[in-house]
């Protein structure tokens, strides 16, 4: 059953010179419930924009995005925020943890706008990602790999149906990148969340049964 369906999606930007630049043109794309798909693409091909459109952070110029039965392209901004809070988890390349919050608080922040804060579940997630003894640490007190694991725990904290991962290993070395991908895949699987990961790292992509070139998806 399809969890995410994208059809005839288009997004155009106004370049600094003033000309229009079409960055997204996706005729069709879909992910079934619980599936894990990787998209390969080099920088500047619109991968992040694509994920932001799916997450409802950006508004499409035209086309349709349906997440968990709700057409996100037809929703107002605040409704898209609500949908994102309830159905979508997002892992960023730069982790985007809040510096003033502890690891535990960062994870709880991931629940706040959706399911509501649940300290026990947040602690469980941090233990699951191997940070049971680092819950009260601030991001600056954690290694890069540990920060990524906090970001993974936060992305799953609202029990999302779909997890979007944007170059999640971009800031990690080979060893930690492999660990991170394994963790993301496992944790999505354990929580029955579908995973859409975009990366230019062929090592990462090689570990997915279904990996596509983003150029095959995005026909610009």
């Amino acid at each position: 059953m399809s969890l995410l369906t994208v059809t005839n999606l288009e997004k155009t930007y106004v370049s600094p010179e003033g000309s229009l630049s079409r960055i997204i043109n996706v005729p069709h794309f879909e992910i079934d419930t619980g599936k894990q798909i990787a998209l390969r693409g080099s920088s500047g091909t619109g991968k992040t924009t694509f994920l932001n459109l799916i997450a409802g952070i950006l508004q499409a110029d035209s086309g349709h995005i349906v997440v968990a039965g709700e057409e996100i392209t037809a929703l107002s901004e605040s409704e898209r925020d609500r949908l994102r809070a309830h159905y979508i988890g997002y892992i960023f390349q730069t982790f985007n943890l809040l510096a003033g919050y502890t690891a535990l608080e960062n994870v709880m922040l991931g629940m706040m706008f959706g399911t509501g804060m649940d300290t026990n579940f947040a602690q469980h997630l941090l233990e699951r990602v191997g940070l049971g003894d680092r819950m009260q640490y601030r991001p600056s007190q954690l290694s890069v790999g540990q920060q990524q694991r906090v970001a993974v725990a936060r992305a799953i904290a609202n029990r999302p149906r779909l997890v979007l991962a944007d170059e999640p290993t971009g800031n990690l070395d080979y060893h930690h990148a492999n660990e991170a991908v394994t963790l993301i895949r496992e944790i999505c699987h354990e929580n029955s969340a579908a995973l859409l990961i975009v990366s230019h790292d062929s090592e990462v992509l090689g570990r997915f049964e279904e990996a596509k070139d983003f150029t095959q998806v995005n026909c610009v």
Binding site: A55, I57, E77, S78, D81, R82, R84, A85, H86, Y90, F92, N96, L97, L98, L109, G110, M112, F113, G114, R154, N158
Partner: peptide
């Protein structure tokens, strides 16, 4: 601004 953007990405609304 980045903090607000992160909050928004987690589902916080503008009015929040």
């Amino acid at each position: 601004r980045r903090e607000f953007a992160i909050l928004r990405s987690l589902g916080a609304r503008r009015k929040t």
